[in-house]
Structures are given as C-alpha cells and as structure tokens.
Design a protein around this nucleic acid. Sequence first.
DNA 1: TATTGTTATACTCTATAACTATA
DNA 2: TATAGTTATAGAGTATAACAATA
Lengths: 160, 160
Amino acid sequence: MAKPPKTRAVETDAIASEAAAQPSYGALQGLLGYQLRRAQLRVYDDFLRTLAQWQMTPPRYAALEIVAENAQLKLTDLANMLGIARSGAVLLVDTLVEMGYMERLPSLTDKRAFALKMTTAGQATLKAIRTAVQAHEAHITAQLSPAERAKLLQLIERVG
Amino acid sequence: MAKPPKTRAVETDAIASEAAAQPSYGALQGLLGYQLRRAQLRVYDDFLRTLAQWQMTPPRYAALEIVAENAQLKLTDLANMLGIARSGAVLLVDTLVEMGYMERLPSLTDKRAFALKMTTAGQATLKAIRTAVQAHEAHITAQLSPAERAKLLQLIERVG
DNA sequence: TATTGTTATACTCTATAACTATA
DNA sequence: TATAGTTATAGAGTATAACAATA
C-alpha cells in the first residue's frame, strides 16, 4: 500500500520485567490518574500489536475515522478535532497520504484550504482495520462483561 | 528547592479549540481505547496545572512515591517498576536529584549500585505534593460519586 | 559471564513561530 | 488583518547499544 513509516522495533537491552524484592507502589495504587495511565499504556501496546500489519497507531487511526466521517474536512478542522497543533496534523496527513489512505483535494470554497478525502483503497483498508480494532477492543475488555464495559465507557467519559 | 527543569509554556499559534461545522467522531466514540486516551489527556493536563508550582509531572511524581515507599531501591528496580528503560530512569533520577527531592546513596550490598533515598526536604515537599494530588483527583472525579469513582478504579484495573 | 549505572545516539511526538497565499 | 497550510526548529520522552566497574 506504500512506504511503511516506522513504528519501532523491540530489541535486547530494553525493558526488563522483574521488580524489587517486595516492591510497593504506595499511594499510587489508589489514584485514578495513575491507574488510567497504566491502563492506557497497556491498551496502546495491544493496539500497536494488533494493528502492526497496517503500521497503524491510535492517532493515525483516529485521523482516518474522522476524515472518513466528515466530508470536505480541512486540515485545521482535523487538528482541532484531534486536539493537536496544525503543524502536527500536517505531518500526520503526510504520513497517511504516503501510506495511500487519504488525499488532499482542493477545497470547493477556499483556495487556501484542502478537502481531505479517503482514497478508494483507503476506504477498503479501513474496513479491515475496523475489524482489527474490534479484535483489539475485545482483547482489552476480555476481563469485563458487556455490561461492565458499557459502565466503564460511561464513567470514563465523565472523568476530567 | 533547586534548578527548575522545564515543563513547557503555552503560547500563541498553538491548539485552537473550535471544530468543523457539525463534526462527527464516528466509530471512535464507542471505543474504549479512544475514550481512555482522551480521558488520560484531560487528566494529564489537570495534573500539570494543579502541580505546576512543583514542576511536577506524573512520571516524576510516581518516581517520588516509589522511592519514598521502598528503602534501598536500586535505579534498575525503579526503572522496572515504572516500566521504562534504565537509561530513562537515569535522566528521571538526575532531574529529581537536581530538584533536591532525592539522593543517590551507596548501596549497602552492591558496590555497583546506588540506594535511592528521599532527602529530608524531599519528604516534606512530598507531603504538600500529596495534598495537591488529592486536589487533582478531586477535580477529575468531580462528576462522579465516591461509589462511581471506586467502581471506575476497579474496572480500569481489569483493562488491558 | 552477567549486571549496574552511565553515556551516546536516535526517533517519535508535539509544540512555537515565522512564512506564503489567499480570504 | 486574519486564516490555511507549510516549514524550521526545538524540547520532552523514551528507546537501543556500548562501556567501565563490579558481581
């Protein structure tokens, strides 16, 4: 599908997995912020593993869904929806264009702007990616009942 | 307390906050991974804001709690408990030593290793920081009842 | 031989700021 | 004057890999 941007290889010296004798995390255990962060790292890892064959990362995937969902989206709109700076959105879109997922079409109403659009191939691949994302979601919620998953989703949206 | 390492200033061009006409996040809305990520960003922001006067970040705070909790902790143990590489732990400890929170004492049992220890001033400051962290927790859970907060914590730990 | 802390180096992500071409 | 996209640059975070001292 195109030039594969990097995701990172895991090698030798890296992260070990054993800890101290009887290590204690003290006050951290009961902190929502801390547990949220640890969970996010676990989830991120599983996402990368599950979607490795598409070189997909969470921000890339979010950008694809947003562009697929919103016709005539400007790059600045995408940046705002993702909560990142425009300069970052440029790089993200560059990558996704290189990968063949989307393209920059001239905006119908503003000669300064582009209208972001999924390519035909990108739309097709997104379908496969969505299946993988569902598998990913299944992995990370494997220890939760459907009701618990729904409850969790509802509670998380009220955090922050 | 010491040389203040950077956290970052927010200036002009940065992130805008408006979005497209009637923007849709499509499939993202229902994804636990996505909502977890968004929540984590909100929480991270509030943490930085609430603990700005101590130049504290979540990883720095986690390191402080872990060192305060575990006597004779080696740098390698800290790295493992934080889930980062040893080289990263060196930089983190460098920062916290510069800030006057902790010190590297010779290990009693291994001439290669250090025993990380909170300084007296560090211990005292950590108490104030803990109070601020509790305020931070209160902010981010303001829309949850105590029971809901407990439920959320319990569910999050089962994710991933 | 393996491990501890360190350093050198590199890569990702994201930011600020300045520029250009439009509006 | 303000906005859209871009580019240059920089900083934080974290990784791999190699090294000296010690186990």
